[in-house]
């Protein structure tokens, strides 16, 4: 009798856990499914490769795709050297003490600053004080602030994950610290570092608040870094909130999700390939 009760409790608990797990999958499925159903009809070569036109922004979204990739790519170029060098310093050179703990705490806090605050800061600093105006470079600089802590921390973890005995092997051959770091440690950590960069780029692609404050909302094909532009996220916001063109909004949303997914999948693929090679 008692045993039955126990089994029943067990089964009930299991059902609850299972339902909780299922909820996650259902929510994800619902979001993707809804966007897919509403957006897939829009997407075609014309949608991707032509400019929007007319009062209801018919046609394509090409300039916004270019602006998004442009600003993300530029942000990656800015953030990578700074974040990697900072991580090398933290992991290899810095005396592990108060200063390093402070830097780490600052990075973690920076990562949790609401992106709209970062946007406001970018507006004040890059757009106005530094006079870059609404431009791709302003957007890229502000985005790089957002990406910096992510890339720095993942790089630091990647460097720390390189086994001590591999470094010793290098020192044992008469290598200096810098030679060991640059020729053995960084190459060994490279794929995990790149994974971190790609993941942070995925985050940048989906960012809205920062770019609306710094890159503006003008639909044009940005060529120079000082040109303004409208990112896909901002375009999506305007299409939907101003009720201009819902089908195009869903098409944009679908494309955006596909891009973020592509970033995440390529990061996973890189990590797996790396594990195979080292294993």
């Amino acid at each position: 009798m008692k045993r039955d009760a126990k089994n029943l409790t067990n089964a009930a608990a299991l059902a609850v856990f299972w339902l909780a797990g299922l909820t996650t999958v259902v929510v994800l499925g619902a979001v993707i499914g809804y966007v897919l159903v509403n957006g897939v009809g829009e997407i075609g070569l014309e949608f991707i490769f032509t400019n929007p036109h007319g009062v209801n922004a018919e046609g394509g979204i090409w300039p916004t795709i270019v602006a998004t990739l442009y600003v993300t790519g530029l942000a990656m170029l800015i953030v990578t050297p700074v974040a990697v060098l900072a991580a090398v310093y933290l992991a290899e050179y810095a005396v592990q003490g108060r200063l390093v703990r402070t830097i780490r705490f600052a990075a973690d806090t920076l990562a949790s600053v609401p992106s709209i605050v970062m946007g406001l800061f970018g507006l004040a600093l890059f757009v106005e004080s530094m006079g870059f105006g609404f431009s791709v470079i302003s957007g890229a600089l502000a985005l790089s602030f957002l990406m910096l802590p992510i890339v720095m921390r993942t790089t630091e973890e990647a460097i720390r994950a390189v086994p001590k005995y591999i470094r010793w092997g290098s020192y044992g051959l008469g290598a200096s610290k810098w030679q060991t770091v640059s020729r053995v440690v960084l190459p060994a950590a490279a794929s995990r570092i790149i994974t971190g960069i790609i993941l942070s780029a995925g985050r940048a692609v989906g960012e809205t608040a920062v770019v609306i404050f710094t890159m503006g909302t003008m639909i044009n094909l940005p060529v120079l870094p000082t040109d303004p532009g409208r990112s896909m996220t901002v375009h999506l916001y305007q299409l939907a909130m101003e009720g201009i063109n819902m089908p195009a909004a869903f098409g944009t949303a679908l494309l955006l999700m596909a891009m973020v997914l592509a970033f995440n999948l390529s990061a996973r693929w890189l990590l797996r390939r790396n594990r195979r090679m080292q294993g």
Binding site: W168, G169, Y171, G172, L173, G174, A188
Partner: peptide, 20 residues
């Protein structure tokens, strides 16, 4: 010490080839 370690080489318990 860097020059010394070239003259006095070392082999470790765990084989440690570089990932190259």
């Amino acid at each position: 010490p860097v020059d010394l370690r070239r003259r006095v080489g070392m082999i470790f318990q765990q084989p440690n080839p570089f990932p190259m």
